[in-house]
């Protein structure tokens, strides 16, 4: 379970998160929607401590993420993250991309890491691209590679930061299909997304971010079909 309590985060003088409260249950799929600059992506970075926070508290399975004594490297193995920008390791094959962290961080054997990599690449539909380098893969394939790389750490949670936003429209579908697969498997997902129909279909709950706080949150179908708050209606009206 992830518990976010009154989190504030600033970049210099700009306050991006202004008191965020959120609880995510194990097995839940939560989608974060909202305008750009509303703080959705920043919140994801704060959950796995790639960004620091100014005040408040974030706990993951009872571990205070930002406490000085917390082993954040160990914590991050439980929190897979996939970014909007392509970030495959360019000098490694798809297989080596996925095998690196299990081998170095989890200290699995070479053979085990290799098997893990091949298993998860097949899982995301890249079983025939094991020896390809990222530059030989399409954007959609690179994102699926990034998903496989995160999954190979066997995380309890997946943090997805607009993973389809940098893709050509015809490639979005294949990545969403992969995400559907994850959702069906019961892994806990927090996804920042602009794919509203997708959020409606796979998410348990949807949270609308506005001006650094969660403006409205509710069951996916209710919030998207029948938003209560004026700002949410306005946002959904613009993008649907």
């Amino acid at each position: 379970m992830i518990i976010i309590e009154n989190v504030h985060k600033s970049f210099g003088k700009v306050e991006v998160l202004k008191g965020v409260n959120l609880t995510v249950e194990k097995g839940e799929v939560l989608c974060l929607i909202g305008g750009s600059g509303s703080g959705k992506s920043t919140l994801l970075m704060c959950i796995n401590a790639l960004e620091t926070i100014q005040s408040g508290r974030i706990t993951v399975d009872g571990i205070d993420v930002h406490a000085p004594a917390t082993n954040r490297n160990k914590l991050r193995t439980k929190l897979g993250i996939v970014f909007q920008q392509f970030n495959a390791f360019p000098h490694l094959t798809a297989r080596a991309n996925v095998a690196l962290a299990p081998r170095q961080v989890l200290k699995t054997s070479r053979v085990e890491a290799r098997d893990l990599a091949e298993h998860y690449l097949a899982h995301v539909g890249l079983g025939d691209k094991l020896d390809h380098f990222p530059s030989q893969l399409s954007g959609g394939q690179q994102q699926r590679l990034a998903i496989a790389r995160a999954l190979a750490m066997k995380p309890d949670y997946m943090l997805l930061d607009e993973v389809t936003s940098a893709l050509d429209p015809e490639l979005v579908g294949e990545v969403l299909d992969t995400l559907r697969l994850l959702a069906e498997e019961g892994i806990t997902i927090i996804a920042v997304t602009h794919e509203i129909p997708f959020a409606r279909e796979v998410a348990d709950r949807v949270a609308f971010f506005h001006q650094g706080v969660i403006h409205e949150i509710g069951p996916a179908k209710d919030l998207i079909s029948n938003p209560q708050m004026e700002r949410t209606q306005e946002f959904l009206g613009k993008i649907l």
Partner: peptide, 17 residues
């Protein structure tokens, strides 16, 4: 690219790794 390094750290790698 910073995001490439972030991806590595996000996988639980230490700074040195």
């Amino acid at each position: 690219p910073p995001v490439t390094v972030k991806a590595a750290r996000g996988l639980g790698m230490t700074y040195l790794q």
